[in-house]
Simulated assay, not measured.
Amino acid sequence: MPLSHDHIRTTVDSYLARNPHEREQLGAFLNGLDQTGDEIASRSTFTGHVTCGAIVVDDLGRVLHVLHLASGKFLVPGGHAEAADESLAATALRELHEETGIPPQAVTAWPGYETVPFDIDIHDIDAHPRKGEPGHQHFDLRFLFRLHTTTDVPVVLQEDEVGGIEWRPVDRVTQPPLREKLLKLPAMTEPETANASALIYNDRGEYLLHLRDYFPGEIWEPGMWSLLGGGREPQDASLEHTVRRELAEEAGLDLADLTPFGTEYASNDDSATVPIAIYAGRWNGDPRELRLTEGVMLAWFTPSDLHRLRIADTTSDLVRRHAASLSASAAPQSGLSSPEERRPASPSGTVLNVIGVHLYLERPDGTVLLGLRHPNSAFAPSTWHVLAVH
C-alpha cells in the first residue's frame, strides 16, 4: 500500500516542531499535503510529490554523494516512494541500496533522527516530454544515517541512473542549506541502546496494553501495563524494523501501517538515557487470539481507564497525548458521544445502568491478586482480571 497521508503529515509536523523557522519555505509542500492527500506520495502527482533521500556519514565524517545521470550533479542518494515501502525512512534506505548497493544493515539512524528527517528540501524538476512528465516539484525528505560497519562496503552502482560515487567532507557537501546543517551537527555519539514501542489503537478509541511479567531487576517496568516493543538489535536497519520485529516476536502481530509519533526518553538500570521511538498503528483485532510469548496478557483500555491500572505516568501521558492528537473526523471514538452510548443495550433496546464493584489487592512488593475468568464469562472470558462483581 502507498505511504499514507497521516504518516507523511506526522513526519512533517515532527520536523517542523524542530525547525519552526522553515514553515514558510515549506509552504508549497504543506499546501500539497492539504490538497492531494495520499496522492502526494505518487510520482504521477505533478503538482508536486514526495521523494526521500539518505544522508550517509562514514566514520571519517564524510558524506556519501552519487552522480545522478539525469541531472549530471553529485547529490545524496534518493528517489521516489514505492507502494511496498513501509515508511519514508524505508524509502530512503531502499533507494540507498538500489543506487549504491549499500544494504540497510550497513547503516544506522543518527541518534535523535530515528523517525524525523534531518532536512526537507523543495526543488524543481524539468519537464520530460518523452516520459509525458511536465515540470514539477520534488518534496525531498532526507534521513540521516551513519555507516557503522568497520569494513569496506562493496559498491554496486545502479548503472542506468548513477554514474559514480564520492565521499565528500562536510564542507564540500554540494547543497549549501544541507551543508550548513551538517556543519552545525554535534559529533556522532552512538548510544549503546535504543528502543522502539508500538502505540496500537482501535476504532473504539481503545489502546492495546501489555501486562509485563513481574521480574524485578530483569525487565523494565515489571508487573506494569506498558506498550509492546523492545530494544534495537544489530540486525535492525532502523527503529521501525525494531518495533516490527518486537511485535512479531512478542505477539505474532504484523501491522500494515505504522506511523512515527515521536521520541520519548527513559533511564535504564544504569541511569543512562535511552531514546524510545514511538510508532502508532491502528488494529481492530482480538488480543486473545494473539500468540503472546512474553508477559502475562494483552488487553484494550480507553484513556479514561488508565488511572485504574498499574502503569507508568509516562506511558499514560503518551496514550492521552495520542488520543488528543486524533482529529474529530478520524478519532476512533467517533460516533460514541457519551458514556450512555457506550453501555451495552438490553435485548429490548433499553439502556442498562450497570454498576460494578472491583477488588484490587496489591502486596507491598507490587504483586497483584488476579482471578482467571471462566471461558463462558460474558465479560473478558479466559483472561486474568481483578476480582469483580455487578
Results as ranks from 00 to 15, higher is better:
G37Q: 09
S329P: 05
F145E: 02
R146K: 14
V173R: 01
A378H: 10
P347L: 09
R308N: 10
N268C: 09
L26P: 07
V116Y: 06
Y360M: 13
F29T: 06
D317M: 00
R310H: 11
H5C: 01
R146N: 10
V57I: 15
P191A: 10
D171W: 04
W225D: 01
T273W: 07
N195C: 12
W300Q: 06
P347V: 03
G53S: 15
G48W: 02
G349W: 06
G101I: 05
L16E: 07
H374D: 13
V351F: 02
S377N: 13
A90E: 12
S226E: 01
L182E: 02
R62S: 11
I122G: 00
E161Q: 11
W300V: 00
L88H: 03
D59G: 03
N195E: 11
T11A: 03
R179Q: 13
C52G: 07
Y201K: 05
E22F: 04
D38W: 02
T47L: 10
D38T: 01
E341D: 11
Q35V: 03
S382R: 14
A70G: 09
Y207L: 08
L369G: 06
G132H: 07
D236R: 00
E39V: 01
K184M: 13
E190T: 13
S382L: 08
P129E: 05
A323I: 05
D313K: 12
D124F: 12
L157H: 05
A237F: 05
N268H: 09
G32L: 04
F74M: 12
L3S: 06
H390T: 09
D160K: 13
S42L: 08
L258M: 15
N31H: 11
V153C: 12
G371P: 01
V66S: 00
G112P: 07
G163Q: 02
E233W: 11
I200E: 06
H307E: 13
D254W: 02
V50P: 04
N202A: 11
S316V: 00
H49Y: 14
D152V: 10
S337K: 10
V50M: 11
E133Y: 12
A272F: 07
P2W: 09
A41W: 04
P260R: 01
L183Q: 14
E240R: 11
V63I: 15
P222E: 09
T151C: 02
T45P: 03
T273A: 14
L298E: 07
F74D: 02
R130D: 12
D58E: 08
R244Y: 08
I102C: 10
V156A: 09
T193A: 14
E294G: 04
V389R: 14
P177A: 13
T315M: 03
D171K: 08
V354M: 10
E289H: 09
G37A: 11
I355Y: 12
L185P: 03
S87L: 00
N376Y: 11
V274H: 03
P375S: 12
L185F: 00
E218D: 13
D171L: 08
H65I: 01
R244F: 08
S238R: 05
A127L: 10
K131H: 10
A328V: 09
V354N: 04
R18M: 13
V389T: 15
W167Y: 04
A277Q: 04
D6F: 04
H97W: 14
V12Y: 02
R232E: 09
V50F: 08
D305L: 06
G164Y: 03
L208I: 07
S44H: 11
L93A: 07
